[in-house]
Design a protein around this nucleic acid. Sequence first.
DNA 1: GCCTCTCGTTTGAACCGTCAGTCAACCTGA
DNA 2: TCAGGTTGACTGACGGTTCAAACGAGAGGC
Lengths: 209, 209
Amino acid sequence: MSTRARTKPQRDRHQEIVEAAAQVITDRGLAETRIQDIADRCGVSPGLILYYFGSKDRLLVEALTYANDQSYLRTSRELRKLPAASQRMDRLIELSVPGLLPEYSLLDEWALWLEIWVRALRDPEMAKERENLDRRWVQSISEVIRYGRQTGEFPSDAADADDIAMEFGAMVDGLAIQVLLNDTVMTPSRMHDICLDVARRLIGYDGTR
Amino acid sequence: MSTRARTKPQRDRHQEIVEAAAQVITDRGLAETRIQDIADRCGVSPGLILYYFGSKDRLLVEALTYANDQSYLRTSRELRKLPAASQRMDRLIELSVPGLLPEYSLLDEWALWLEIWVRALRDPEMAKERENLDRRWVQSISEVIRYGRQTGEFPSDAADADDIAMEFGAMVDGLAIQVLLNDTVMTPSRMHDICLDVARRLIGYDGTR
DNA sequence: GCCTCTCGTTTGAACCGTCAGTCAACCTGA
DNA sequence: TCAGGTTGACTGACGGTTCAAACGAGAGGC
């Protein structure tokens, strides 16, 4: 925990490696990710990676959760800035569609979800993390709903906010998979339309699109 | 001279290997599947696998599509036996929930979907196959809907059958992922309830549950 | 019936690149 | 000098692929 290092601009190495790992996983896929790739990416020797993480697996799990974490925090922060619940909902939807916004596409993030899921199939630690990450996303949907009901923007007579969020979140997952995999029928804009439509139907607000 | 083949290829070797491969992938996951495992599973030498398929990758893609294919055909055949559209729909839902029916759980089939998706991320051939497979499943939903409308069992004033099927199918995918990964909140029976509920809401029929 | 030739099938070991993980030595700043 | 950070060559195992040889079922000849 030195405050500063001179010869090398070393920030927290741990952090640096995790970020590099997340990028490599995004680029090449989990199965094709080598320790050497990660080492190259942050200009370091392979040995050092093991020095910090002990094993490749530990690093991979941390990288996957870290990337998702960042993505969540970024989105969450952005939503909180918007005053109206309907704006938050619409923006949340916009940000959920892979490849809809070119500058901010979330394509990578969705690809990482797939990797997380496959790994969670057989890695209990990953399975547990996956549930935490997922729960948080669903909660941020239901928070928007509750927020809208509190401010009177959304009607309060509809179903339980958590139930709606779960159902809606599941549909977003399913649609996102198709869009991510370049389905010819399910395009980003079609997914966007469907999501807006379903959200309005479930929550009961009208959009000004 | 027990289990050994004395004569010519007992059955189609190609077929035999594909089936063995699908089982191994199901058991150990795509990433952990070795040619040796597949060879062991059908009592054959590793060399023979390559003799028939040229490369591991070609076999894997074929095995993944084959397994999904079988699962689809089995389901499709079963649905066609049921007279009423509502029965077909309910059964289709039942069969879609991983682990709901102990004897017939589809757990494996869903796990294979995950593998297909990840592979499709970077393998164009797999991506194309994936779209074919997926389209077929969605179509079998919309066929049930159209069938019900034809027989007057379902109202015809609701949305387009294809749109409903797509939306519903996406939600099933999303929910199935959670159930498959042993989510503590999203249990098989909860998924089942949600699916029945949403199906009735979207299609507009009432269940006799 | 028996031999033999042939060709598709099958084997098993060898080949060879790859890669996670190890280790002894080497910084470098305090 | 000391300690933690860093290196990079090394290793040991692994696993896809190759290949030369063996096998065995039929066809045809005798």
